[in-house]
């Protein structure tokens, strides 16, 4: 078998010749073809498997790509100095009604390690219980603890007696 291969391997050119490095002999050609066909098979198997596993991720991305959320009418009854958790797409968000009656909406996902934050009315701050991160309740700015970035702020609009929250 090996003798045959060696004999066949020389068909493409003299191995000791000056051009042997540039010319592809039969063995090299077969190796290349097997490699390409193998890669095609790997892709033909790998692609459906990847799409299968990524299917819920794709769905969540599509659901999370919302730009605007209309909150239920009850949100208008939110007492002053309190907050309401709601879903902005697939992710938790926070609507805060301040003492002066104004509203602020922001992402409720801590920018440190992704825990869900909470509004603390007594201290009028947004707090992350996981690592004691503190955010400003009006601006969403990270003011103490490990969070590296402010919370994402959303625009709040009141239209026809309903609160509409949208991405800035």
């Amino acid at each position: 078998m090996s003798n045959q291969s060696e004999t066949m391997g020389r068909i493409g050119g003299d191995e000791k010749g000056p051009e042997s490095g540039d010319l592809m002999d039969r063995r090299g050609f077969i190796t290349a073809v097997v490699g390409v066909v193998g890669a095609c098979y790997a892709a033909a198997i790998g692609y459906p498997v990847y799409r299968y596993l990524a299917s819920p991720v794709e769905e969540a991305m599509a659901a999370g790509a919302v730009k605007e959320v209309t909150l239920p009418k009850e949100a208008m009854d939110l007492p002053q100095n309190s907050a309401l958790m709601f879903k902005f797409g697939t992710r938790p968000a926070l609507l805060i009604r301040h003492e002066d009656g104004t509203y602020t909406a922001m992402s409720a996902i801590c920018t440190h390690l992704g825990c869900t934050v909470t509004y603390e009315p007594d201290q009028k701050r947004v707090f992350c219980p996981c690592h004691s991160g503190v955010y400003d309740a009006v601006s969403g700015k990270n003011v103490a603890g490990p969070p590296p970035h402010p919370l994402e702020r959303y625009e709040v609009e009141i239209r026809d007696g309903q609160i509409i929250v949208r991405r800035s």
Binding site: P48, V49, R51, Y52, A54, S55, P56, E58
Partner: peptide, 9 residues
């Protein structure tokens, strides 16, 4: 019917 390529798997 819902998951991509689920029918194939």
């Amino acid at each position: 019917y819902d998951i991509k390529f689920g029918w194939l798997i």
